[in-house]
């Protein structure tokens, strides 16, 4: 069976809370192995995928992206965004050096309008510090089990929706 749903943790393992997305997805794999090993689910942890993120979304019917975010929320807070909501966070960076997930998704939509058919959810974990060489902050580390549960919830929800759609 081909994968229909992808779960992608995004971040940098050596930059403090920027590793939150990677760590959350790995914990989800550990805590929910039955779902994570289903043949229709593909799991990736990507450090700085850049525009390559679009290749990982290619052909997917649903995606759960997990990434660290900077927000006014307390560190460890988790927010859920749909594709359209995520696009609202596009910066005015004219250089690809300033691009993040939102800009990449926007480019992906311009190049491949069918991307909007993908049920894409972005789970954002608020970070506190992003210094090179730092570990996860205690607040983010403490939030990982809940983040893993939310990933599981989103994956199961997507699986149910796809099953209904494909019936």
């Amino acid at each position: 069976m081909e994968a229909k749903i992808t779960v992608i943790g995004i971040g940098q393992s050596l930059r403090g809370d920027d590793a939150a997305g990677l760590m959350a997805v790995r914990l989800w794999q550990k805590n929910f192995p039955e779902t994570a090993s289903r043949p229709e689910v593909r799991v990736e942890t990507l450090e700085l995928p850049g525009l390559g993120l679009l290749d990982y979304l290619d052909g997917m019917q649903a995606a759960v992206l997990v990434d660290a975010i900077r927000s006014p929320d307390p560190a460890g807070s988790l927010r859920r965004f749909t594709l359209r909501q995520a696009l609202a966070f596009t910066s005015d960076a004219r250089s690809a050096h300033g691009w993040g997930v939102a800009e990449t998704l926007q480019l992906g939509l311009a190049l491949n309008p069918s991307l909007c058919q993908c049920r894409l959810i972005l789970l954002g974990l608020s970070g506190r510090h992003f210094q090179t060489g730092a570990a996860l902050s205690p607040e983010v580390e403490a939030a990982l089990p809940y983040a893993a549960e939310r990933i599981e919830h989103e994956v199961l929800r997507s699986l149910r929706k796809l099953a209904r759609k494909n019936d």
Binding site: L51, G52, L54, A96, Q106, L107, A110, L111, N112
Partner: peptide
């Protein structure tokens, strides 16, 4: 155009091919 995003909006085939050309190198 100010950026590749603007270019992609008016010439998606050009940018799509560019990304494919680049990806083959990677």
């Amino acid at each position: 155009k100010e950026s590749a995003l603007e270019l992609a909006a008016v010439a998606p085939d050009v940018v799509r091919n560019a990304l494919r050309l680049k990806k083959i190198g990677n």
